[in-house]
Design a protein around this nucleic acid. Sequence first.
DNA 1: CGATTGCCTTTTGTCTACAGTCTACTGAGC
DNA 2: GCTCAGTAGACTGTAGACAAAAGGCAATCG
Lengths: 226, 226
Amino acid sequence: MLSTGLPQGAVPKLERPGPLRERVYEALLELITTRALQPGQHLVESELAGHLGVSRQPVREALQRLNTEGWVDLRPAQGAFVHEPTEEEADQLLTVRTLLEAEAARLAAANTGTAGITALEELCAKGEQAVADGEVDLVVTLNAAFHAKVMELAGNVVLAELAGQVDRRVRWYYTPVARRRGKQSWIEHRALIAAIAERDEGKATEIMRAHTEHTRQTYHRRERDA
Amino acid sequence: MLSTGLPQGAVPKLERPGPLRERVYEALLELITTRALQPGQHLVESELAGHLGVSRQPVREALQRLNTEGWVDLRPAQGAFVHEPTEEEADQLLTVRTLLEAEAARLAAANTGTAGITALEELCAKGEQAVADGEVDLVVTLNAAFHAKVMELAGNVVLAELAGQVDRRVRWYYTPVARRRGKQSWIEHRALIAAIAERDEGKATEIMRAHTEHTRQTYHRRERDA
DNA sequence: CGATTGCCTTTTGTCTACAGTCTACTGAGC
DNA sequence: GCTCAGTAGACTGTAGACAAAAGGCAATCG
């Protein structure tokens, strides 16, 4: 026990900058997902290093991590290139996402108590409000938060980690068309909450599966309507 | 098109050593999975570097990759430690594995032609032979090969990648007890092949699910019987 | 005798330098 | 005019060196 009379949360924890490679990683991921770095673009280590004001080393480490996670392709002795999503890959990612999310819904239905339900309902309310207000970016954020919450309630850390990566990449592919699926999406969220509250595993699984399948179909409609 | 009259596979590809970090990565992974490096052990970069005859840099890069894949925990400014599997984590991992493998079985049933069936049957025959001969290591290898083949037939690269990582970690946790599940396992493999050959997606899914669930139960029996 | 504080060792985090390799361009030969 | 060899440039892959942070130990003060 600390014998100083300081109140618990008063000390701002003296924000440590954290490892440089982490921040470089975050920065690059941000640049990629926002399309500031376009697919296929050649990433030169020294350029990025100079641009970010660090040495090549942290940049290298960040690039390698991005490589293992599928964001960039690392061609030997040639450099890093932003990964170019293919139609097939997007479809496969969506398949996996459906699988993981559906399982998360099932586990959430099995484990969640009233506290969790309340949290979901709050997020859902916020989301519906954001849709009504036409705040597109906020809707996207809240949608991610909702799914993340379901994942959290599932209580499977391994599953959550995998789904986190898959989701982020799906969102990357999907961003250009994410705008159109607004209202209907939150209706489905409501149904999911109900199923979880009833602890109906099968129902929750099916609703989530249908929900992410709708997302996939929206994605595929992209080409025709674009 | 190459105009040289050389046969296609004749040139031994002039074996390039490949990036050092890759080889270091493989080496460390081998050391971890074989328990040469025990869970919780502190991995010192300079030691590993000296031991492997390389500089610290490739070791660092390998460690970071191992970190993102969950093999080691990288505590800031303190170093790398071999990850210590917990009971809970093992269970979650097995859950995810069941999920991924079952989906792979479903997709394999949907896509596989006669060539694929033949390949599976060959692997299965080899496996049964190895069980009969009591060649334990070979059985483990063939089991992995069989599941990898099913995954390949599923034709979903993303799914395969995820399952590959999960499987490898499961096998790490599971190795000490992997010995006991021999004969029964290959009977189930036979059933799975039949379901895939019939293109019965539901049946294939269920068989694979039951199969990996058996594995999980075997794992949990470990404590009592050990 | 116990707690605290300062120093010291160890290890990581970062930067700079050098060597190997691939690409693209230039110029000569056919 | 086209092809091919040669060469120069650029970038990555690797190594070594320096600085900063964390943990451990001992000496000191209460």
